[in-house]
């Protein structure tokens, strides 16, 4: 049986998301191991440009360009994917464990009776098959999971699970017309997009997270400035969200979002277990806290023990220099 790999590419403003480029890079390694074909599927409205970028990574890029796919809906997307998975029958389907991925793939897995592994953070290609690394219990335990031999595997990964490689290919682009079917039971009344040009919190490489130690909503502008400078995002602890200083969208932790940026900086965050669960897969963790005994120092790589309000202006200046040099 072939072990073809298919990547579901997510786009933002018709550009492939970084998380999808990561999957394309990882998918290449998997396809090489099994000497199989690497497919990608790009769907939406006006996707030519995105397909061009994606084809730099794949053997075959399937584009479904259809005005009725402009807005996301699991009903629309799953009907298209159903057609594609049936026609091309890949053995391994990879997606991002984004809001879209979490909404869409379980339905497809049930439709195809597929092995479903979600919210994974890595793969192991040593040995015969494919092993998937998936954290459990808020990251307290790591499990290694294998799909059954006959089943189609659908796996979703957290953003920042893989490095993005150089494209360097010129794969075939296949334009497909697929049946888009809508669930008659759902009518969208309205949808509001914050219209933010900023990266998603879960996809950000750089996160500076404020805790109760930031004292007030207006002080988060200090963090916003640094996040903007670094092309990253501001996160928040639950206490901050409960105090209405920041939106729930920004909350990192057990009852908020799970993030794994390259660099996480916590400012005035104590490091309660509930918070740590949402960020301990970050590559590098920095803590800024005036209390040397704050639990966050047990999880951090680097720490500054000082008043955040004295540290942050200096940090902004130093980071500005780094940016200007590069």
């Amino acid at each position: 049986m072939s072990k073809d790999v298919l990547i579901f590419v997510e786009c933002k403003d018709a550009v492939p998301r970084k998380a999808s480029l990561e999957l394309l890079s990882a998918g290449r390694q998997i396809a090489e191991k099994f000497s199989s074909v690497l497919f990608a599927v790009v769907m939406g409205s006006d996707m030519k440009n995105a397909a061009g970028i994606v084809s730099g990574y794949t053997d075959k890029t399937i584009v479904v360009d259809d005005g009725s796919l402009a807005e996301y809906g699991w009903d629309l997307m799953s009907s298209v994917l159903e057609g594609i998975l049936t026609k091309y029958s890949p053995a391994i389907v990879l997606g991002t464990s984004s809001m879209t991925g979490k909404d869409l793939f379980p339905r497809l897995a049930a439709r195809f009776q597929a092995a479903m592994v979600s919210d994974a953070v890595g793969v192991d290609l040593e040995g015969d098959g494919l092993k998937i690394k998936k954290p459990l219990y808020g990251g307290k335990v790591i499990s290694w999971v294998a799909p059954g031999p006959e089943a189609m595997l659908i796996a979703t990964f957290r953003p920042n699970s893989f490095a993005v490689n150089e494209p360097g290919r010129n794969g075939e682009i296949i334009e497909e017309k697929m049946n888009v079917s809508k669930d008659p039971g759902i009518t969208v009344v309205s949808s509001t997009k914050a219209g933010s040009k900023k990266v998603d919190l879960q996809e950000a490489d750089f996160i500076i997270c404020g805790g109760r130690g930031m004292k007030a909503a207006e002080n988060f502008s200090l963090l916003e400035d640094i996040a903007d400078l670094m092309g990253g995002r501001v996160g928040a602890s639950r206490t901050v969200v409960d105090s209405k200083w920041r939106d729930y969208d920004d909350q990192i932790g057990k009852s908020g979002k799970t993030v794994s940026p390259k660099l996480y900086i916590g400012c005035g965050v104590s490091g309660a277990l509930h918070h740590i669960m949402g960020m301990d897969t970050s590559k590098v963790i920095v803590a800024i806290n005036k209390d040397p005994n704050a639990p966050i120092f047990q999880y951090a790589d680097y720490g500054i023990v000082d008043d955040a309000f004295a540290v942050l202006p200096a940090l902004k200046e130093e980071l500005k220099k780094v940016r200007e040099d590069s």
């Binding site: 009776q113 597929a114 092995a115 479903m116 592994v117 092993k131 954290p135 459990l136 990251g139 307290k140 335990v141 790591i142 499990s143 290694w144 999971v145 294998a146 799909p147 059954g148 089943a151 301990d280 897969t281 963790i285 803590a287 040397p292 120092f297 047990q298 999880y299 951090a300 790589d301 680097y302 720490g303 500054i304 023990v305 000082d306 008043d307 004295a310 540290v311 200096a314 940090l315 200046e317 130093e318």
Partner: peptide
Amino acid sequence: SRVSVLSYELPAQRPSVRIIEGETPEEKVK
């Protein structure tokens, strides 16, 4: 069952924190 758990392990431990010392906040940041 379509999936099987092969093994469990603990997450990789981070080395203990390095506190960056300095006379002033600016020095620490540098």
